[in-house]
């Protein structure tokens, strides 16, 4: 198999402890069309702002926050579908941020970072059968064809609990759970080291969700993949993730071990978020209700806490000084002036 593209890289041990090391990453979009001879700089949407975190080998990192908090953009940055404005993305031994997203499509490391998309129905080409969809990255990234390809497709499908009889079906002929399995099989086919899971169970019924989550845990153990897991469902994040990153308006407001963060959140935003999750025991924490909407992400005040104005405990200081992430016991961090050690 000399024709195989890439992934014959540095041995993993040589790459150090962190698979992914993201530092001071920012992504700003100009609002509207940039004019060729325009005088004023266009207004900028700060989608991701000064985000730093690490992902250890074999670890699962959860990414939570409201819609518009920048988690989707962050996912696209990590998966190298979009180029960052500033900052670094270190993957293994390589700095990937300088590599344009267009060029990364044929990079040897492309196979090592894969995504499971949110709506498996929408992310599978409607003109492709399940087998075509799973085969696509194997053909492109691993240069497989013929029987070897068929074998790898069937292997990936089997790993994901997808009956081989379903491989010839089109996405619209599959159930939601089966489509989710196709999406996962497609992503693990090239044997990535990092799998970004973007709301993989959001469209599924709870009874199916359980099987998909259990499948993801099994794959993590058998294949040794590291996950970045994005979800709006905190209970699901808690089940699957070792650590969690909470984002608000493009910035990280809190990180730490998932259970600790959800059981005793430090940041006032995290407290409101956790309190808003409906509970089966019906106990509501109405006192912590977060009212209002997030502020505009367009050219936000660089010296004000992004949560200022919606925060139940904010003071004048929060409008004048951007809180930095501070360390707390138990490997936790929070960006708030008024958080005391838990």
């Amino acid at each position: 198999m000399s024709g195989m593209i890439g992934n014959d890289p540095t041995p993993r041990e040589a790459e150090g402890r962190y698979l992914l090391d993201v530092a001071e990453l920012s992504k700003r979009f100009p609002l509207g069309r940039r004019r060729l001879f325009g005088k004023a700089a266009p207004a900028m949407v700060h989608a991701v702002d000064d985000v730093s975190f690490t992902l250890a080998r074999g670890e699962t990192l959860g990414l939570v926050g409201e819609s518009g908090c920048g988690k989707s953009t962050l996912v696209r940055l990590i998966a190298r579908l979009t180029d960052p404005t500033t900052g670094s993305i270190r993957f293994g031994n390589r700095e990937l941020s300088a590599l344009p997203a267009k060029a990364f499509a044929r990079d040897p490391d492309r196979a090592r970072i894969q995504i499971v998309f949110q709506d498996a129905g929408e992310s599978i080409n409607p003109r492709f059968t399940a087998a075509d969809a799973i085969a696509d990255p194997l053909r492109q990234l691993r240069g497989l064809g013929g029987d070897a390809l068929r074998e790898k497709v069937e292997e990936a499908a089997t790993l994901c609990g997808l009956p081989l009889a379903l491989l010839d079906r089109f996405p619209h002929q599959l159930s939601g759970g089966q489509r989710a399995r196709v999406g996962i099989a497609r992503a693990i086919g090239p044997r990535p080291d990092l799998l970004v899971l973007d709301e993989p169970t959001a469209a599924l019924d709870v009874s199916v969700q359980v099987t998909i989550l259990q499948l993801l845990v099994r794959l993590r153990e058998t294949l040794g993949i590291s996950y970045v897991f994005v979800s709006h469902d905190l209970n699901v994040v808690r089940l699957l993730c070792d650590r969690v990153v909470v984002m608000y308006l493009g910035r990280i407001v809190e990180t730490g071990p998932a259970r600790a963060v959800f059981d005793a959140p430090l940041h006032p935003y995290t407290r409101g978020l956790v309190a808003a999750v409906p509970r089966l025991d019906g106990l509501r924490a109405d006192a912590l209700r977060l009212a209002g909407d997030p502020r505009s992400p367009i050219d936000p005040d660089p010296d004000a806490c992004r949560f200022h104005g919606r925060c139940p405990i904010g003071t004048g200081r929060c409008g004048a000084e951007m809180p930095k992430l501070r360390r707390f016991d138990g490997g936790r961090e929070a960006a708030c002036h008024y958080v005391e050690a838990a």
Binding site: A105, Q118, Q140
Partner: peptide, 26 residues
Amino acid sequence: EAGFVDAARIAGHRDMGVLLLQVAPN
């Protein structure tokens, strides 16, 4: 902007590949 276009990029297709092999059949 469809999900499968991103999926194709992740699968290692360049722009022309996405255009002709993924979008055109649709």
